[in-house]
Design a protein around this nucleic acid. Structure first.
Lengths: 147, 147
DNA sequence: CCTTAACAAGACAAAGTTATCCAGTTTGGT
DNA sequence: ACCAAACTGGATAACTTTGTCTTGTTAAGG
């Protein structure tokens, strides 16, 4: 459910939010988020199909967010690349169960619902603004003498 | 996170709980839970390794629960076959983050924690006793004339 | 118009998951 | 002892996910 692809997509989106509204190249994102760049480009294409990203090619091109970070939730990102699978009907196809989930699947879907809820309640801006600890994905800027 | 294997394992455990403390053959479980029997036997071996099941071979053998259904949680079953992956340290291996999760991964792990919590709070007996709707996994017994 | 930076798209490879099959081994009953 | 019912373990196959590579296509700038 939190697949590698989802993890990569979230890293990329956070990184872009951090630099919003500026564009970043795929390569820049790959380095910053430690994602294999060739694979990242596939993931980004998924995010573009979901209309979360704008990709421009050619010199000076790159990747940018379509909407500001406070209008994009974690759930949006997850659903763009690997949609959260809710259990909507009996996986055993029991006719008598139909749309009503049995107690087992009811519980499993409740768990999925809580994840969906949590993801829907956090925007990328929320994540960036989180006062808790460190900057998402980033080492704190090193204080260098020559700067 | 709720992989096919986990789904199968839970179906088998619920089925066994339903018949506890009697044993069932792998084939009986496979038919009742609509799981491919050859694969089910692998899944059951995982549950045995986790000491949730007792498998006996030979005539009259079969699969039985090691503990009563009210002492086995959904989480026990999940962790036996495909352990729930909590995020315990920064996936980017940023030295500065170390054990502290950044706001992104903190949120992701919180979601995992809520799932873990939900799974830990339901025993197999709870699922069976659930008054909500239908019997877990089963079609209601059909009223046949000759019976 | 040519070069170069950048994304696009498809083929392909590696690894993990799911599923099948078969030749053993154990066990109870005759 | 033998037979038949059941699980065991290993090999293998199909499929999905993850990752790489190569060849295109787009766009800016001189």
């Amino acid at each position: 459910m939190i697949t590698q692809t989802v993890e990569y997509a979230l890293r990329a989106m956070i990184h872009l939010s951090h630099h919003a509204p500026d564009a970043q190249t795929t390569e820049q994102i790959a380095v910053a988020t430690k994602v294999p760049s060739a694979y990242l480009s596939k993931v980004l294409q998924g995010l573009r199909r979901a209309e979360l990203l704008h990709l421009r090619r050619g010199i000076g091109g790159g990747v940018s967010l379509v909407k500001p970070p406070d209008e994009i939730t974690i759930l949006d990102v997850v659903n763009a690349v690997d949609p959260l699978q809710r259990i909507v009907s009996c996986p055993l196809k029991l006719a008598s169960h139909g749309e009503k989930l049995c107690p087992l699947h009811r519980r499993m879907d409740d768990a999925m619902a809580s994840v969906e809820q949590a993801f829907a309640n956090s925007t990328l801006a929320d994540v960036l603004a989180d006062p808790s600890t460190s900057v998402p994905l980033c080492n704190p800027p090193k204080r260098k003498s020559g700067r």
